[in-house]
């Protein structure tokens, strides 16, 4: 695995995504998702909202890094809020 050039932060990041996917699978088996409409302009499933949350979180970071000189931890905080909001109300 050395060739993959792992670092602790990236390992935690990918482990968190893998864990989230496992949780989504478990939830799907226990309580199958229903397409529903919330704040987003289209009906979404739980998986759709997860994808939108992740993509949105990535772009929040890119915008933050491209437009502000401030620390990226603020962007991570903002992205976490976005993630929770979209998963719950999206």
């Amino acid at each position: 695995m050395t060739w993959m050039a792992w670092t602790l932060p990236t390992a935690i990041f990918f482990a968190a995504i893998a864990l989230a996917l496992l949780v989504l699978i478990a939830l799907e088996l226990k309580r199958p998702t229903l397409t529903s409409r919330g704040w987003l302009p289209m009906a979404t499933t739980r998986g759709d909202r997860f994808f939108i949350s992740l993509l949105g979180a990535a772009f929040i970071h890119l915008l933050w890094l491209g437009l502000t000189p401030w620390n990226a931890f603020y962007a991570s905080g903002l992205a976490s809020v976005w993630l929770v909001v979209i998963m719950a109300k999206g």
């Binding site: 060739w3 993959m4 050039a5 792992w6 670092t7 932060p9 990236t10 990041f13 990918f14 970071h61 890094l65 990226a72």
Partner: peptide, 23 residues
Amino acid sequence: LMTVVNYSVQDILDFNTRFFVGF
């Protein structure tokens, strides 16, 4: 893709010498 993400947060000088640089 995961490997590319790992590379993107490091300054890679050679195969054994690399430093974490964040974003």
